[in-house]
């Protein structure tokens, strides 16, 4: 009999009315549900869009370094918003205040949120207190990009470097982030190329970090 307390008579059940998309569209953006997410789209949709963005930016710059700077800016705005969106979506109430935690958060959670996998490695640069890097063998954005020879060391993953910078900055960790190709050799396989995202933290962040470390 106790169970009855938990089951409501059907007559008093709230009736659900379906809300049509056109009604939702009329709501203020802040009233719209944030979790209503169409989780995934075809990879090519992104690849075509990104390739066109690279083409567009390329016509407006003189040098490879400027193009990387523009791609970094493009990613920065994505990173800022992605961090906020991810925290709301996953209901993350904890705010990372320590450097290694936020870097780990970016490597795992943010990466999974945007790229569906964690980044391969997070490493600290030897002898440098304020430099870390995230390593990724095949950055998603470079999947369908081939760089012409006269573009030198251009790495379009500068966009992803921008995302890292945007997310870090929004979390209160000012940093500069850049993407580079690195050639690696391992015994078990042929020489290969990976992308590293070099993260150099601002002096103010390091000062705070020292204080927190006590």
């Amino acid at each position: 009999m106790e169970l009855r307390r938990f089951t409501q008579p059907s007559a008093t059940k709230p009736t659900h009315t379906t809300v049509s998309n056109s009604e939702i569209a009329k709501w203020n953006i802040l009233d719209r549900p944030l979790t209503r997410s169409r989780e995934e789209l075809y990879l090519s949709t992104f690849s075509f869009l990104f390739a066109e963005a690279v083409q567009y930016l390329q016509t407006r710059v003189q040098q490879v370094s400027e193009l990387e700077e523009k791609l970094n800016q493009l990613g920065y705005r994505v990173g800022q918003r992605a961090l906020e969106l991810l925290c709301f979506r996953e209901k993350l109430n904890r705010r990372e205040i320590r450097l290694v935690s936020i870097l780990g958060f970016i490597r795992v959670q943010l990466w999974k949120f945007l790229f569906k996998k964690s980044a391969d490695y997070l490493k600290k640069v030897t002898d440098r207190e304020d430099e870390y890097y995230i390593e990724e063998e095949e950055p998603l954005v470079n999947r369908y990009i081939s760089v012409p020879k006269d573009f030198g060391q251009l790495n379009c993953a500068a966009f992803m470097a921008g995302i890292i910078r945007g997310a870090l900055d929004s979390a209160g960790f000012t940093a500069s982030v850049s993407a580079h190709y690195i050639h690696r050799e391992e015994k078990s396989r042929l020489a290969f190329t990976v992308t590293i995202f070099m993260i150099r933290l601002d002096e103010s962040v390091m000062n705070r970090e020292r204080k927190l470390a006590g």
């Binding site: 918003r81 790229f115 569906k116």
Partner: peptide
């Protein structure tokens, strides 16, 4: 790919 990545990009 994540739909959010497409929308934000």
């Amino acid at each position: 790919v994540s739909a959010d990545l497409v929308a934000l990009t």
